[in-house]
Design a protein around this nucleic acid. Structure first.
Length: 580
RNA sequence: GACCCCAUAGCUCAGCUGGAUAGAGCGUCGGCCUCCGGAGCCGAAGGUCGCAGGUUCGAAUCCUGCUGGGGUCGCCA
């Protein structure tokens, strides 16, 4: 059950019965437990409208609310707050229901959508680096959250497998490698590309050769195409390794090359819609001119003088063209009603432009740019190697795993065989990296600091894995089946039990809100609060040594905590571990 | 030049469609291992929410201006 929704509905009904009007209840969790569990703030807004005394209205609403069995108390406070205290027996009954629910009390959405999530998007012939970290982690988490709440989700890796870099790559391969990519790995490819790109700057005839190679490839030359395919295969092998390490998967790999055949259609479409005109030889869309046709461009685009170019003066297409084709495909072929682009926030303007064009072309779907900030080092500058190069994702993951292993060997709380230790260290290291990324508001830049990351304290991935492992430990010790644990009702006595129970009840709302608003940090916040409340409970309330309904109730709280922690971690793309 | 984003405790960050005394982690200081995992728990100190106005019963949150920082903007993605 979505608890906030439930009480919001309840409060609205109370307002309607008490005052005979439909009005927003404005239900919020209280900030301080002495004000109860939730507060209804609607009375104050309503009093203003009706020019009545807010406390009087609040009193009538409270009198109505208190009749409900879920409500233990409803009191008027301050200028017109209605403070609600939940009934512990009601909470206990709800928790017992969740314990018996394979979805841990999280309902499915009423209306399932088809949603494309576009994330990761690495380039061919380049190693993945920190710039791909957030898109990959965030995107994968969003896919699993949206899928869990009931949407039909298509995770799509929109790889950069087409475009000017291939001219350079082929020309470079011919010049430096005799034209044979055999034996090259991803780093080798990248080296060829860098060498070629440098040569092209210094030597115009080489640059011409590269352009000629690109033209050959794009005109469908069989030999060029075969080389291209080898580049793709070499890169794909490397990408598969990285994604396997990260536990990241996709449903589709529809890269830029996939849309190439559709690009002439894009030009036809924008031309037919009178959106584009030639300027300085390029085919351009000018948003500031839309007003003349009576439909001004949305937001800041209305004043945007710089064009959205869909065809260069040399006739070549750009990513804008491809992106329009991508919207077409997602709408017409994938039948998606929503697409989410998990891409660096610096591309915000591009997406505003793209979405405006898509709307004008009549694609009735919800398009969202889920942006994120830059990964910075400890000093607040974009994270790079000492030489100023991008840090490869592979080396970053290596270090995370190595550091996790080191900590685990030093701390050594439980005895694990060496191979198991290494396996768990991987899950902990990768989990730490993912959690650190997801716990932060995605729009702000974030500081990546291995020292903090692997410290394993506080609001961190390892702490959450640790908390979950501790829960499992109780059941192992007591030789009780955790997965199959059921109880008819949960009795709440100790304050720590009551606090934990209230946090547990919030899970469904948190998961839905985090998924719908694409904000995984809401889920990490909940998991952290849960882990803390559990620790408090764990310190104050002996479980195995207690008896009767106290024992079964406490075991139920443990089981629910364990499930939420593990479920939450899985939704974030982090692997729970049994022991660490 | 235009536009966008950001500014909250020493540091890193939360703060939901405006709600009560602005929260957490790390760090600092002080407690807690006869007890189910101490990677833990409890407590304390620490903030003119960048500045100045405005709207409101009520503003970190909304509006305007200013300062400081970051970013983006015709043929890369």
């Amino acid at each position: 059950m979505r608890i906030e929704r439930y009480f919001d509905d309840l409060a609205q009904q109370a307002i309607e019965s008490a005052l005979g009007v439909k009005a927003p209840a404005i239900l919020k969790p209280t900030q301080d437990a002495k004000h109860g569990d939730y507060q209804v703030n609607g009375a104050m807004a309503l009093a203003k409208q009706r020019k009545e005394n807010p406390r009087d209205l609040a009193g009538k609403i409270a009198a109505e609310l208190v009749k409900h069995p879920a409500v233990a108390g409803a009191e008027v406070a301050g200028p017109g707050f209605v403070n609600l205290r939940l009934n512990d027996a009601w909470i206990g009954a709800e928790l017992a229901k969740n314990l018996d629910d394979p979805r841990d009390g999280v309902p499915s959405v009423e209306k399932a959508e088809r949603i494309v999530v576009d994330y990761s998007s690495p380039n061919i012939a380049k190693q993945m680096h920190v710039g791909h970290l957030r898109s990959t982690i965030l995107g994968h988490a969003l896919v699993s959250m949206l899928r869990f709440v009931g949407h039909h989700v298509i995770g799509d890796n929109h790889i950069g497998d087409w475009g000017t870099q291939f001219g350079l790559l082929i020309a470079g391969l011919r010049t430096f490698r005799g034209g044979d990519p055999a034996g090259l790995d991803i780093a080798g490819l990248e080296a060829v590309y860098k060498q070629a790109s440098k040569r092209a700057e210094e030597d115009p005839s080489f640059a011409d050769a590269a352009r000629a190679e690109l033209a050959k490839l794009q005109s469908g030359d069989a030999e060029s195409r075969a080389l291209w395919q080898q580049f793709v295969d070499i890169t794909r092998a490397e990408l598969d390794k990285i994604y396997a390490r990260m536990g990241v998967t996709f449903d589709e790999w529809l890269g830029e090359s996939f849309y190439d055949p559709m690009l002439p259609r894009v030009i036809e479409a924008v031309t037919a819609a009178n959106l584009a005109r030639e300027d300085q030889g390029a085919l351009c869309i000018f948003f500031h001119e839309w007003a003349e046709s009576g439909a001004p461009a949305p937001g800041r685009l209305a004043k945007q003088k710089e064009p959205f170019i869909v065809r260069k003066k040399d006739g070549a297409f750009l990513y804008s063209t491809t992106d329009i084709a991508t919207v077409m495909h997602r709408h017409e072929v994938l039948h998606a009603s929503r697409a989410i682009y998990v891409v660096d926030v610096r591309q915000a303007l591009h997406f505003e432009q793209l979405f405006a064009v898509a709307a004008r072309l009549g694609f009735a779907m919800r398009l969202e740019h889920v942006g994120f900030g830059t990964v910075l080092d400890e000093s607040g500058k974009p994270l790079k190697t000492r030489e100023g190069k991008a840090i490869t994702l592979a080396s970053l993951l290596d270090e995370a795993e190595a550091r996790a292993l080191e900590v685990m060997k030093n701390e050594k709380v439980v005895d694990l065989p060496e191979d198991e230790l290494v396996r768990v260290a991987r899950a902990v290291g990768i989990g730490a990296v993912k959690y650190a990324d997801l716990r932060q508001n995605r729009l702000s830049d974030y500081q990546f600091d291995f020292a903090k990351l692997i410290e394993f304290r506080g609001n961190s991935g390892p702490y959450m894995q640790y908390a979950a492992a501790r829960v499992g430990s109780i059941f192992r010790k007591g030789e009780i089946d955790e997965a199959g644990f059921r109880v008819p009702e949960v009795h709440l006595e100790a304050p720590e039990e009551k606090a934990l129970a209230r946090t547990l009840l919030k899970f469904a709302d948190v998961v839905h809100t985090a998924a719908e608003t694409c904000q995984p940090h809401l889920l990490t916040d909940h998991l952290f609060a849960l882990a803390r409340d559990y620790s408090g409970f764990f310190e104050a309330c002996p479980v195995l040594k207690s008896e009767g309904t106290t024992r079964t109730s406490r075991l139920a709280l443990c089981a629910l905590t364990g499930r939420q922690l593990r479920r939450g971690l899985v939704l974030l793309g982090i692997e729970p571990v049994e022991r660490m």
